[in-house]
Each structure stands twice: as structure tokens, then as C-alpha cells.
Design a protein around this nucleic acid. Structure first.
Lengths: 177, 177
DNA sequence: CTAAAGTTTCAATAATTACTGAAACTTTAG
DNA sequence: CTAAAGTTTCAGTAATTATTGAAACTTTAG
């Protein structure tokens, strides 16, 4: 694994950012390495490239599989396993987004659903606030899922519109803020 | 601070989710408590309600201020400081989104910008990949900033459209996936 | 079936992050 | 100016999370 200076800097950066992105240093580094490397590489090569233990690589790969970010492959006449990024950058970003939604929003949404269900009548301040949060998360979740269901190219076109989308809404208060 | 069972459960839940949302347990709990409580409360009341030390509350409040999520107020004839959620649920969500973008995306974007600038000519595989990631992050960042600049009601209307927005694009491949 | 090649697990430990509480600092009433 | 009320800081410690490496497990070639 010959790694040039910039590539190395990028991998290290992803390691440091890892925890902010929802996983640990090692997972961030492995993911970056697999994205940057043209062909599938073995767990051993990963361990060597990142100077981490074989066991750590195994756990990291398992974690990345739970995020659906890596692909497994084999070479003919070689029983080692080789790993590669699962898809294009855009698809990977969508996958990460989807998984994060599942991990960061879903648990709270289901807690709120059951709490609100159990106290439908109540109109206390805190109940109202819980209702507001629930509605926000529900709408966000539904919307994010819809966006994630689009093809990357469609999504890109939509995003390029920026706040221009508000035209659809036929609103005059487009950009008051 | 009289806290009912559900409210308490919600606060504890926010503490546990805290680390997934980009801050620690205490910060998650304090934030939830302030959102759920009708009037501003003092640091001492927070410490008591959550059974945590006064020092920890102080650090938590500082952190929440860096997120622009809390408001400070005073009562006449009382020199204690009182704290409250900074704004509506929607505005708070937008603020969190904005801050997370700043913490999770901006550092990587600026690294990539400088790396790509330094190697404009190169057409290696890894350079191409870095370029793709850069473009994705740049578009995402710009788009997210545009959305965040909208008023909550406008944003809500937009979100309610779901994947219906693709109509604007005049595309026939709306929902292939 | 056996041995070699490869992978995973997990107890021990290292590294990191969070929390406490007492001391230091700041502000204001008198 | 002083003392009391309030707030912040931070060294020490607790709790959590990440990492290693050796043992256990799995797979397959022969």
C-alpha cells in the first residue's frame, strides 16, 4: 500500500473526525482508506497501512459492514477476503445519512410516540413541547427518507436549486431572514 | 423542579442520545430540561433536578452557549442567572443543524480545498476521489445553508412536499429507485 | 480427517472523555 | 472597601471507550 502524503493526511483527518461522524478513529481511517484505494485490499494490508492491530481491523470492518459501506470480494485461487468501498461517493453519503437517521432520530421518535400515545389528553406545557419535538422529528424523518430514495443525480439537481426551490411553494416570503 | 415520570424519562433519553448528537450526556440532559421547563431556571436548580455537580452544570451551560441553544435572563431583585431554551423547537433544530455542519463538514471541506489546490494537475485515482468528496461536501454545505436560511414555516411547507419537489426539476425519472 | 491459512472474539489494558468538589475568581450590596 | 452571593476553573478521579494480542474458532486444500 504505497500512500502519498496527501492521501495519508486525508486518512488521518478522517480518523480524527470519525467520532464526530458517528464512529471511532479506526473506522474513520479504514473507511477513508477503502474509498481512496482503487482495488480491494485485504484486512492484513489495512492493518499494515494504518499501523493498527489485526483484531482492530476486524472489528472496524464489522462496524463498517453494519453501516453498509463496504463490499467483500475474493480473488481466484486465493482464499483471503478483500474489501472495497460499497458504492459511489454519493451513494455512500446517502447510506451514511440513512444510517445516522436510524441511529440518531428513530429511537427518540419511538420514545415520543409511545409517550404521547399514553397521554393523549394532557395539555401540560411539557406535553406540548414533547408533541412539537415529535412533529419535527417525524416530518424530518419522512422528508429525509424521501430524499434518500432519490437517485444521486436527481438529488444533485435538486440541491443545486438551493433556496430556489421555494418557487414551488408559491410563497412571497421567500427569503425574509 | 417537580418533574413527572415521562418528562424525566425523556430527559434521561436525551442524555443517553447526547453523544450521538454531538455532545455529552450532561449537555443532552440540560438541553432537554430547559426545553421542557416553562420558565427560566437557575444553575443550582438544574444541578438539583439532574443530580449532578454545580461545576458540571457550569461546563454544560457553557457548551450549550457555544451551540447558541440557550438564553440567559435575570429576575428583578435577584442577582442569580436564569437559563432557558433560546428559541422555538424549529429554530433550535435549525441551529443544531447549522452548528453540526460547521463542526462535521467544514473542517474536511477546508482540508480538501487546500489539498486539491496544491495538486490541480494530478489525475490519480485518489485525487479524483478527493475531488468527488469535495464536490459532494461543497454542494451539501451550500444547500444546507440555504435551507437553514429559510423561515421555519417555509421550511416545513417544503418538507411536506417530500419527493414531490422533483416536479420542479421537470424530470421523468422521479422515482426510479 | 488433518493441518494450514485465515478470521473473529474477548479479557486485559491503554487512551480518552466526563465529572466532582474545592479553590479561585467575579460581582454587587451595604 | 468588605463580605456575602454567585460563578468558573481545574486538578484529581471516575467512567467510558478503543485497542491489542493471544486463544478460539472457521474454512478449505490435500
Amino acid at each position: 500500500m504505497p500512500i502519498n502524503t496527501d492521501t495519508h493526511a486525508f486518512i488521518m483527518h478522517c480518523g480524527e473526525m470519525g467520532s464526530r461522524w458517528g464512529f471511532n478513529r479506526t473506522v474513520g481511517q479504514i473507511c477513508a482508506l477503502l474509498v481512496i484505494t482503487p482495488e480491494p485490499i485485504s484486512a492484513e494490508q489495512i492493518a499494515e497501512a494504518l499501523s493498527i492491530s489485526r483484531g482492530n481491523v476486524s472489528m472496524g470492518l464489522k462496524e463498517l459492514q453494519s453501516w453498509r459501506l463496504i463490499q467483500l470480494s475474493h480473488k481466484p485461487g486465493d482464499r483471503k477476503e478483500y474489501f472495497d468501498a460499497a458504492s459511489s461517493i454519493w451513494e455512500m453519503a446517502q447510506t451514511i445519512f440513512e444510517e445516522r437517521l436510524k441511529r440518531e432520530v428513530d429511537p427518540t421518535l419511538s420514545l415520543l410516540r409511545s409517550q404521547l400515545l399514553a397521554h393523549e389528553g394532557d395539555a401540560t406545557y411539557s406535553q406540548q413541547r414533547l408533541q412539537e419535538i415529535h412533529d419535527l422529528l417525524e416530518l424530518t424523518s419522512t422528508w429525509a427518507t424521501a430524499l434518500n430514495g432519490m437517485q444521486p443525480t436527481t438529488l444533485q439537481q435538486l440541491m443545486k436549486l438551493g433556496s430556489g426551490v421555494t418557487k414551488v411553494l408559491g410563497l412571497k416570503d421567500k427569503l425574509k431572514r
